[in-house]
């Protein structure tokens, strides 16, 4: 499902953001590379810094450390080429829906696709006529429900005809039908125009069939980055008698005394008395979230143009294993050196 993009949509090197002295870093040492043409899911626990990362990419705030390039240039220079929808979907409450779309048209005079924006805002009529809860052009934003406001906010994003869409929890307010509509529209956009889409979300199951790039955030940095299929291929669920797991990177392990179940990145073929299984994406993400000390894994290189194609193994080395299952205190530095 991965499409080869020849450019980079987003690159972060050592990105850090700290709001106030006492509160510490929200983002720290965050590095990743997102090629163009991907539909990327930005996943992470609440407070991991997903919104901050998207705001940095949108040029709304400045990083305190590191660099971030958007579509090859700084966020400010790329302002016309990407779209951003904030988590709260801020909209001018006093305007009507039509006036808000007009606002988008006036502000984006260089590139604005009114039919596209209207299609998202007003939706497609079903056979019976306008669907339930369809927006009226004369309705004031103030009177709309959360999900309806989301439609308008997304309409503003789509109408911009962007090369990159940064969406902060776009699905949160939408009803199931609208959610499918939106996903369809996003896929269509990506297919037609090669738009790169970054969506932060919590609902992994929904994204599973749709996204071809995954960024897992934790501890202020990106911990997993790459094609979900490749990431899944790099991990194995093993069950077997309690044994040490040297030679493999252990992400998470549970020892019941008699049996040991672990999610590992195999460093070689596992021994015969292990039962192996492929983890689901949800299991993979949960395991990483529960174990913040597991080493990062990227299936893309941070340098543009050196992307590995889908079927091959990734270009990261396994780091040393301390020996005891469950303890995965990896040295961050080794990982960086391996990647660079």
């Amino acid at each position: 499902m991965s499409r080869v993009g020849d450019g980079t949509a987003l690159t972060a090197v050592g990105l850090g953001k700290r709001y106030r002295r006492r509160r510490g870093h929200v983002l720290r040492d965050c590095s990743f590379r997102l090629p163009t043409g991907r539909i990327c899911a930005l996943v992470g626990p609440n407070g991991a810094g997903k919104s901050t990362l998207l705001q940095l990419a949108a040029g709304l705030i400045r990083p305190t450390e590191g660099t971030l390039t958007v579509l090859g240039t700084s966020p400010a220079a790329a302002r016309e080429r990407f779209a951003y929808v904030a988590q709260g979907k801020p909209l001018p409450l006093q305007l009507t829906v039509a006036a808000t779309l007009r606002l988008g048209a006036e502000l984006n005079r260089a590139r604005w696709d009114q039919p596209a924006a209207e299609r998202i805002a007003y939706g497609h009529p079903t056979e019976q006529g306008a669907r339930d809860g369809a927006l009226e052009p004369t309705a004031r934003i103030r009177s709309l429900s959360g999900g309806q406001r989301t439609r308008v906010a997304l309409a503003l994003a789509f109408g911009k005809r962007p090369e990159l869409m940064l969406l902060d929890e776009p699905m949160a307010d939408l009803d199931p039908l609208a959610r499918r509509e939106l996903l369809g529209a996003l896929l269509g956009e990506a297919a037609e125009h090669g738009t790169t889409i970054v969506m932060s979300s919590h609902v992994v199951a929904e994204l599973e069939g749709v996204c071809d790039h995954l960024l897992l955030m934790g501890g202020g940095r990106i911990r997993l980055g790459g094609d979900p299929e490749e990431l899944l291929a790099a991990h194995t669920l093993v069950t077997g008698p309690a044994r040490d797991l040297t030679g493999h990177t252990v992400v998470e392990s549970r020892d019941t005394g008699r049996q040991l179940t672990a999610l590992i990145r195999p460093g070689g073929p596992p021994s015969d008395d292990w039962q192996t299984a492929a983890p689901t994406l949800e299991e993979l993400l949960l395991a990483h979230l529960r174990n913040p000390k597991a080493p990062d894994l990227f299936t893309e290189d941070t340098e543009a143009g050196e992307e590995k194609s889908g079927s091959e193994a990734e270009g990261t080395k396994e780091a040393e294993e301390t020996g005891k299952p469950g303890e995965t205190g990896e040295d961050q530095e080794n990982e960086e050196n391996a990647r660079a």
């Binding site: 048209a105 984006n108 005079r109 260089a110 590139r111 604005w112 009114q114 596209a116």
Partner: peptide, 19 residues
């Protein structure tokens, strides 16, 4: 799903009827 895909109309910027 593709029925709702955003079909690219001619890529003319939709300049609104302005005053």
């Amino acid at each position: 799903m593709s029925a709702f895909a955003v079909r690219g109309t001619a890529e003319t910027p939709g300049v609104p009827p302005g005053g």
